[in-house]
Amino acid sequence: MKLDFAGWLAFGLALALAGCASTATDSGATPPAVAPTLTSDYHIGVDDIVQVSVWRNPELGITVPVRPDGMISVPLIGDVAAGGHTPEEVAKDIQEKLATYVRDPQVAVILTDLRSHEYLSRVRVTGAVRQPVSIPYRPGMTVLDAVLAAGGITEFAAPDRSNLYRKSQDQTQSYEVRLDRILNKGDLDTNFTVAPGDVITVPERVL
């Protein structure tokens, strides 16, 4: 099911208010480290940008997006299946096909831009921020990065009661974020590194 922005906003607010058994709160805990993406194990998807290089044959090199049919067009050999394969598998396929035209070809396939999982790998900021947002995840992104992308907090926010929600297997973990200390005191103890799918909520203060 594909949710629009309002749907994601409702989802984030629901998480903030949830007291159900499926949500575990880790007061003072630190979220687990985000594992780096290994592009050698990554399966290429539609719209990903790939760079094909052939040693000693620069005229055969290309940098192209993967088409909706999962194919890329390579000089001399035409269409090659890229979608659903790793860069190493695509390089091997191109190398075998080029052997008909080029002596002992050495092929490298590099991912230059991961686009196919942009809408699955997002970070969302909801609550008392200037502009609730759903932004693409980037390696190294922190809570502060995400909140600043949302325009910062409003005058009605209770920043030190903020939370980061992360789904882990069959439950959602909650981690306390001392956003006031991050923004006003430079205390980065709870400026956690975010992960794809994280939701950050900033509640309003009780008047």
Rank of each mutant, 00 (worst) to 15 (best):
S27Y: 10
V64E: 01
V202N: 02
L3Y: 14
A82S: 13
Y119D: 12
S40P: 01
S40C: 11
A82N: 03
F11I: 08
D48P: 00
V50E: 02
G151N: 09
T172K: 00
N57Q: 11
T25N: 06
A91M: 04
L183V: 07
S134E: 14
N57K: 06
I62W: 07
A24Q: 14
N191L: 06
R166I: 04
R130C: 04
G19C: 03
D93E: 14
S162Q: 02
P31D: 04
G151H: 10
C20H: 14
M1W: 12
E96G: 09
L9C: 03
G28R: 05
S121E: 15
G84E: 02
L38G: 12
A158T: 08
V80M: 00
T37I: 15
D4W: 12
D48E: 05
E204W: 09
A18N: 13
Y101H: 15
H85G: 03
D47A: 15
M1Q: 10
P136C: 11
A33L: 08
D189Q: 09
R138G: 13
I94S: 04
V80W: 01
E88F: 09
A24F: 08
V80A: 03
V74H: 03
T63W: 05
R161A: 15
T112N: 00
G186H: 06
L3W: 14
G152I: 03
G151D: 06
T39V: 15
D113T: 10
